[in-house]
Amino acid sequence: MEQAVQDIDTEQQQQRADEGHEDVIQVRHVAKSFGDNQVLKDMSMVLHKGENLVILGKSGTGKSVTIKCMVGLLEYDAGELKVFGKEVKSLSEEEMKELRSHVGFLFQSAALYDSMTVRENLEFPLKRVLLIRDQADLDRRVTEVLESVGLPDAIDKMPSELSGGMRKRIGLARTIIMEPEIMLYDEPTTGLDPITSKEISELIRSMQKQYKVSSIIITHDIACAKITSDRMLIMDKGTFVAEGTFDELSKSDNEFIQSFFKL
């Protein structure tokens, strides 16, 4: 299968990465195993500043593991993974905290703190990471970000009172409120109806324009990929097997790549 699909020119990627400044994430030959199960195999990629990169792949191919390695939630076994030019594995606790304050992560389940209201969820990182104590400033930021995700009335609701789509929006608001330079989306449209999925995908696009963030979007939803992607990587069995824009890949005559685009 891997030989059949288009090979990614890793040398070209490396050369691009070596050129430096415009790549906010550089991954070279990263490998990760859980016991005997090798999830990532010699994986290489870069994320350019300001772009939306979609990683498309079947479930269980290592997509989520890839982005969890980028924020130090999982430790990779081999290779090089740099975020803002810093090797993630070698960061101290304080350096990791500093790095994470510039990277937003939207979990598949949105991961809202269910014992807190929406307002408390949004204020949580502001008080603890940016150390903002002024209530007027907190209120201003919370109101602003809720308006940008289209949910200004949800401010005093508990997460249990929100629908799946609303939870995703609040989850997105909680990460965007920190004004990250990089956003990592872990299957942002999974479990949502097609209309809400489209709204979330468009919201991801507008976040890119409004906040000038560089994003990696993990998905197997082709409609989401079409709306959000500037560039796409297709992943299979722990490595990238194809790269291109949505249009380029959708015209591929490779059977495996085409299987993602068939409705």
Partner: peptide
Amino acid sequence: SMQVSEQIDAMEVSGSNPVQY
């Protein structure tokens, strides 16, 4: 249940300190 629903990971990734909180 916070671990299962990735709330602890979310705290950690945001740069907050889940152990302290």
